[in-house]
Design a binder for these strands. Structure first.
Lengths: 249, 249
DNA sequence: CGAATCCTTGAAACCGATCAACGACTGTGG
DNA sequence: CCACAGTCGTTGATCGGTTTCAAGGATTCG
């Protein structure tokens, strides 16, 4: 039994659904930058009605032609590259309010698969239309440069993690990162569901699934977290943070 | 003694210098996209005279305010993040014709250090000016989106390398990548100087310098390459390629 | 020429991967 | 509602690769 109440995934989704409106995720993505009502209307015309993606389905796959970015209105995705021999490298996990597909701009082809890890909804944003609009709305143009830059910074963080950290430090960093991102979206920072398997976590962190499992078990033994399958409760976030700093030696 | 003639670094630089004109690197960056002469002139007005950076000097450092991107007109840089405790993670090596600083757009602060690994020259490209110009030249705007996207794809490749490959596979991939980039710029693909230390290679690849050294020695034993300090001669590129594929199991 | 940095190589320790077995959970159909 | 199959997760034991520690040698630069 955990000490704080668990929030079922279903409830989280419904709660968010109630707060949502059509196209909200991209609106939210752009609201903070201060567009006028008129500009927001223009932005809305670009965006298709929210499109549902069932768990396990692909939003797009590597090699497909690129037409649009996708804003996640609701749900959870993994992005991954499959090498010729079938080996999978997860390059990121993406949740509500985040934008996917920016890697595809470079070659007009998607370079990775985007798979829904729970039933999700996305807003499609045709890229050439967005480019055209962003020429008329400078702040929008700047915002998209920023979004792409943020993706680069995020990737550098992962590179640092993969290059410098030990297994337990990686797991700790991963849990804290998820926790923070849930918190930003108004969910509990201390109690959340993992949408992905241990193997997918391992792929993302450069570890084997057994190592992920062992690390989680050890954290639980030491009272840092509680684990019940995919339900994580963070009990001592400071200890997790300290773990990361120590590990960078 | 090597079988093909070694090209001293000095010669490489001079050779390139002769082909170069002021601001050439950014022009080259943008020429393939088909700007008119008039548009190229406009682009040129943005760009400052080439600015020299001596070996060991910083082009910028993490935390400094961001004003400009930098196109490397000539030379070789490393980009790296220093963690609070002084540990360094090299996030990339950048050579002539490449653009640096795109990570800084997200926060208006540079997020990494850019250090010249040989005497270099850069063209400064004020970002707000570029944004303004790119609104008037759609193809330029698209090109910059592409450049940032390319950086994301590149980082995903490094993540795959760090997450999936063994030490020797990483080194092989690193050498082939350098080889290819030199070849694109008209230098020898089979014989080139490493501008960075073993430690910097290790930092980039998530390995210790001893491991880098050992892998290079082993490749030499097996006749894949020749190593003389920082001079690398690739003798059997196919064997290196095969090494990478095998390692992804 | 001398000092500092960089590189190489060896031996031992350690961490994570691998192999293996079992248990738990999920979802489906009877 | 239960049974079942398949996927997912845990844990143990062993193995292997990379790191660590250490020493010596080479190169570079002032």
């Amino acid at each position: 039994m955990t000490t704080t109440p668990h929030i079922p995934v279903r409830d989280l989704s419904l709660k968010h659904l109630r707060q949502s409106c059509v196209n909200c995720s991209l609106r939210e993505l752009c609201l903070p930058i201060g567009l006028s009502a008129e500009e927001m209307r223009e932005l809305d015309t670009l965006i298709t009605q929210a499109k549902p993606i069932k768990r396990g389905e692909a939003l797009y796959r590597a090699g497909e032609p690129f037409r649009s970015l996708f804003a996640i209105r609701l749900g959870f995705f993994k992005a991954s590259v499959i090498s010729e021999d079938g080996r999978e490298q997860v390059t990121g996990f993406h949740m509500t309010g985040e934008l996917m597909g920016m890697d595809a701009v470079s070659s007009d082809l998607h370079t990775c698969d985007a798979i829904a890890l729970e039933d999700s909804e996305v807003c499609e944003l045709p890229f050439t239309d967005m480019e055209e609009l962003s020429r008329r709305i400078p702040i929008l143009q700047h915002h998209f440069y920023k979004l792409m830059s943020r993706e680069i910074v995020r990737d550098h963080g992962v590179m640092l993690l993969l290059g410098n950290m030990k297994a337990e430090e990686r797991i700790a960093a991963f849990l804290l990162n998820l926790s923070q991102r849930f918190a930003i979206r108004g969910y509990s920072a201390s109690s959340f569901h993992l949408r992905m398997t241990r193997e997918e976590i391992g792929s993302y962190l450069g570890l084997k699934l057994e190592t992920v499992s062992r690390s989680l078990s050890k954290f639980q033994e030491n009272g840092l977290i509680k684990v019940q399958n995919r339900l994580i409760e963070i009990i001592n976030p400071d200890a997790l943070k300290q773990l990361i700093n120590n590990c960078q030696q």
